[in-house]
């Protein structure tokens, strides 16, 4: 039973990491322009945009 003491926090932490990553990507605008991303991948330009 002692292993529960660290296994449960580990499980929650990993889940929380996933949740955090999703919320971050949402806030970062990763889902804002799904159609545009499909086109941008075809662009040849090398210089990054500001």
């Amino acid at each position: 039973m002692n292993m529960l003491i660290y296994l449960i926090p580990v499980a929650l932490l990993l889940g929380g990491l996933g949740l955090g990553a999703f919320l971050w990507s949402l806030r970062n605008g990763q889902y804002d322009d799904l159609d545009g991303a499909a086109w941008r991948v075809l662009e040849d330009e090398d210089q990054p945009r500001g």
Binding site: D32, D33, L34, D35, G36, R49, G50
Partner: peptide, 15 residues
């Protein structure tokens, strides 16, 4: 971007 005062321009195709 060709206009000098513009520092960032980004098109969102979905919206």
């Amino acid at each position: 971007m060709a206009l000098s005062p513009v520092s960032k321009a980004r098109v969102n195709l979905s919206t």
